[in-house]
Design a protein around this nucleic acid. Sequence first.
DNA 1: CTGTTAGCGCATTCAG
DNA 2: CTGAATGCGCTAACAG
Lengths: 333, 333
Amino acid sequence: MKRVTMAEVAAMANVSKSTVSQYINNRFEYMSEETKLRIENAIETLQYRPNYVAKSLKQKQTSTIGVIVANILHTFSTQVIRSIEDFCRESGFHVIVCNADDNPEAEKNYIDMLRAKQVDGLIVFPTGGNMELYESMVEEKYPLVFVDRIVKDVRVDTVLLDNERASELAVDHLISKGYRRIGMITTSLHRNITPRMERINGFKKSLNKHSLPVRESDYAGVEISDMKQTLQRMFAQSDPPEALIAGNDLTMMEILKFAKAANLAIPDQLALVGIDDVSFSEIYDPPLTTVRQPAFEIGKRAGELLLRQVKEGRQDEGRVYRFTPELIIRSST
Amino acid sequence: MKRVTMAEVAAMANVSKSTVSQYINNRFEYMSEETKLRIENAIETLQYRPNYVAKSLKQKQTSTIGVIVANILHTFSTQVIRSIEDFCRESGFHVIVCNADDNPEAEKNYIDMLRAKQVDGLIVFPTGGNMELYESMVEEKYPLVFVDRIVKDVRVDTVLLDNERASELAVDHLISKGYRRIGMITTSLHRNITPRMERINGFKKSLNKHSLPVRESDYAGVEISDMKQTLQRMFAQSDPPEALIAGNDLTMMEILKFAKAANLAIPDQLALVGIDDVSFSEIYDPPLTTVRQPAFEIGKRAGELLLRQVKEGRQDEGRVYRFTPELIIRSST
DNA sequence: CTGTTAGCGCATTCAG
DNA sequence: CTGAATGCGCTAACAG
């Protein structure tokens, strides 16, 4: 811990603490050049650095926000985080990132911890498993923004992808390429997690739009750990899908593993389009067609919404901001 | 900001603040069951949550450490971070992660910021560009641990890979597979960054060990942005390398891009081994042979060393802890 | 077993 | 233009 305090600087410069404080906060308006210099010197020779903790206690704000992601393994999460950090840094805010690992209890712990640390606001990719907590924050008008997932019946600004459109882009593209038997697989649907549900719904709707049947055996939402056998079952059918949509990046990895193990040539035996970009989309063989989320814009918007809340207080909350996905056609389709 | 304070709880429970404080900190030894219950109730109905900022100010410790990585784009960094976080959480410490983006100035800003926030210690992947700062921290006996890179002439505990051994593993393997013309490419060597230098040195030494010549035209350390043309030049030779070692994960991506563009079959026309694992090693076609770092152990050790310093004060500093790499043979060689 | 007291380091009136 | 005084919310002796 740094030991030198404002008092020592004041003593050395022969001024009072409050004068030093003014100097620190750039309020030199009524300060003589001379005192300014004396303070400057004292700070320099003493190597003084102001203590944020004390400042925060006094000012009742830490200039820090918390970000809690449901699962940091998703590329999307890391991209949004970077974007939030960049935006907040420009506004003089720090950000503390936590990973809830899709576990509501961990999420609760982090929310409590972060609030105990007096962060000025929270951006969360909600697990959805802490309704009471979310509600209590809304009631207290605590600055809060959700990302990626909608929580029903809680009035919190939420920014996320137009997920149905993402699936539609994928399906339309596949159909334009001549595929008719199209399947989709994604991570578990059990907890009704927004992007997964919406993407599956979008998938079904798009199939309907094209008057194609939705076969129960051709889509699924299962844990990553069960994906392998789900795929095996799906492709053990006499007429398996000719094309598959990966509901997210982690799912894409599993499909790729499966395709390799099953020796399925892409795209000849199995066409693939992934929702969410993956780092190796371009260099994979074949390069992977994906639907990318505008992660940068999403993060920035979340940051803007949150900082507005912390600066101006809550208002207009409960809005949902949708962002448009983009299809990047490569060679897996 | 949460408004209810300890004083209100005390008032409601008809006890003094200090009694509430004791309760909060689980020091019930001398507390009657009855007061305990009253306090419990008061806390519950008031929804009281202690303010960490105030506590930190008083106790002169935040139970928070900072981690500054040189470049978060490396998979290795993210793995080490997770490992540090897991370890610290178990010990009741929080961690704040910052990315210096290989920029010494950004690093300095983060170090200053984190110290102003009174973090109890720092784990840094040093850029190497802030000697005075590092030295001043050593002088102040500020808890500090370096990861991945050695900074000359600064007595700071450092944990990193046995980089020369990593290259040796790669070279030995390649040679055992019959390759003789072996090259290596990695990111810029300009700033003498430890892992890069050591890996290149290990590469040369291993070649010597096998009595193979080290050809200037077969290895290079260049910025990611220049890698493409460096590779083009290297492979424009009449007798280009038959095998290439990627100095790190980002480099591997570039080589893969190049190989794809140049239509080089792996491993037939070009064998590849990467130092650092990449997410898609297993599913790439062909699966990539890599040398992996024990990132989990490295992070854990860094956490242990730092927490020991914060708890027991600095001592024994300046030790270098080397970890052994592991060769994972897949099919790119 | 519980209350009193005294700061932690800083920002902020309000005088002078 | 500068200084004295006050308190943010909490902990830690030390009394009682």
